[in-house]
Measured scan of single mutants.
Amino acid sequence: MSIQHFRVALIPFFAAFCLPVFAHPETLVKVKDAEDQLGARVGYIELDLNSGKILESFRPEERFPMMSTFKVLLCGAVLSRVDAGQEQLGRRIHYSQNDLVEYSPVTEKHLTDGMTVRELCSAAITMSDNTAANLLLTTIGGPKELTAFLHNMGDHVTRLDRWEPELNEAIPNDERDTTMPAAMATTLRKLLTGELLTLASRQQLIDWMEADKVAGPLLRSALPAGWFIADKSGAGERGSRGIIAALGPDGKPSRIVVIYTTGSQATMDERNRQIAEIGASLIKHW
């Protein structure tokens, strides 16, 4: 067993022997301040990774656009098919120029040779490549099948209805392509620590998230040296922004954090800054 596999296998073990965790309302004060600064709703939840206990939450059962955070769930569904012998990570998928959609920095470079399922998941999570996500959605049967996968996990809230990039439209009061912070946090925890996926697939999923290259201005910008984070960000229309993450000190994750916002007129930089400040408060009061 590799060191990384050992780390993920012992996530519940280490967490069980940690000192009790206590909620700190100071972080919620910052979440509410972010709402004021952005002029928009902000949803927040913080779960203990081992027990699933909610440590703090704000608007945990209000719907927010998922945006690209759905790509972690998508690759979880792909990995479940791999575990069941219905898919192979090494299978190569070929596609054409007509398949390319807006923001496809990886797939646009491989029109000639195609990409493997493993490479597509890596591109979808680490670079948020939209064509990679659409190609992977095709392998599982489309958005409705991802929703069905989530329902089978016990998540009857999260739903995907459309493809990239239309799913980022974020129309107010439109339930399409949305989740709730509580539902997303619980589902992410199941994917990373539950028995739904094999140990190898859980490790692969967290490795992809740990290698995320496009979430630097968010929670990662607030992390002290030595902290662990595996995350996936999302951005959408109407001032929408979000991030889902597993993080913790001492090089291992111990909490799940989900943050979503929508309806702001603020710039992307300002949305990023507010999420980073929430992260800084979380870490300060850990």
Rank of each mutant, 00 (worst) to 15 (best):
D33S: 02
N98V: 11
I244R: 00
S201N: 02
R241W: 08
R273Y: 09
L47E: 10
D48P: 04
V214I: 03
L120P: 00
E87K: 10
G43W: 01
K232P: 00
D207K: 03
G251M: 09
D250K: 02
E277D: 02
V78Q: 15
T131Q: 10
M115F: 12
Y95H: 13
T178S: 05
L191H: 03
V117T: 07
H24F: 04
I256Q: 02
I256L: 05
Q265L: 09
T138N: 14
L191D: 01
I54V: 11
T179W: 00
F58C: 13
H151R: 07
G154W: 12
G43T: 02
V257T: 13
I244Q: 01
P217I: 15
V29I: 08
L120S: 10
V42H: 02
D161G: 05
R59G: 14
K284H: 08
N173Q: 13
I283L: 02
G234D: 00
A211C: 10
L73T: 10
A235Y: 10
E102R: 05
A222F: 02
S254V: 05
D48N: 02
D269P: 07
A132M: 00
E169S: 03
G239D: 12
G194P: 10
L191T: 04
I243L: 15
V214K: 15
N134L: 09
I229R: 04
A84V: 07
M115I: 05
S233P: 06
D129E: 01
L49V: 14
T179G: 01
S201I: 09
L146W: 12
Y260M: 10
W208I: 13
E166D: 13
L49N: 10
R41K: 14
N173R: 12
L196E: 05
S104K: 08
D155K: 01
V29R: 07
A77M: 15
D155Y: 01
S233R: 01
M115E: 09
A276S: 09
G236M: 13
R238F: 13
M115G: 04
L55N: 14
I283E: 03
R162E: 05
L135D: 01
A182I: 04
E87S: 10
T158F: 07
K232N: 01
S233T: 10
I206F: 04
G242D: 01
S128A: 00
G234W: 00
W208K: 01
S221R: 06
L89K: 05
A170I: 02
L167F: 05
P181L: 04
D99N: 02
L47F: 12
I140T: 08
E35N: 10
A245P: 00
G251W: 10
T147L: 10
S104C: 08
T69R: 00
G239W: 02
K232G: 00
L136G: 08
Q203S: 03
A185D: 00
P253C: 03
A34Q: 09
D231G: 10
P224C: 08
L55A: 12
M180N: 08
E195P: 10
R273L: 12
I54T: 10
Y260D: 01
W286F: 11
P165D: 13
P105A: 08
H285K: 10
I244G: 07
L188Q: 03
E87T: 08
M67C: 05
T262L: 09
N272G: 13
T27I: 08
Q265M: 07
E210A: 14
K232Q: 00
N134D: 08
P60C: 10
G236E: 14
I171S: 15
R189D: 03
M184C: 02
Q274I: 08
D155F: 01
A124K: 00
S104R: 12
A266E: 07
A230W: 05
L137F: 06
I45T: 06
T262C: 09
G141H: 07
V78S: 09
Q88H: 08
R118A: 10
A245M: 10
R176K: 06
C75A: 07
A77F: 03
E61V: 07
G251L: 12
Y95G: 08
S80M: 14
P25N: 05
V106S: 15
G236D: 06
K213T: 03
P165L: 07
D161K: 03
L136A: 09
G242V: 01
D113K: 08
A77Y: 14
E61Y: 07
Y260K: 01
A245V: 12
T262R: 08
M153K: 03
D48T: 02
C75P: 00
S128R: 00
E175Q: 08
M209I: 14
P143W: 05
Y103M: 08
E270V: 02
D207L: 09
N98I: 06
T262S: 09
H285E: 04
K109G: 06
Y260N: 04
N272H: 09
A77C: 09
Y95F: 08
R255T: 13
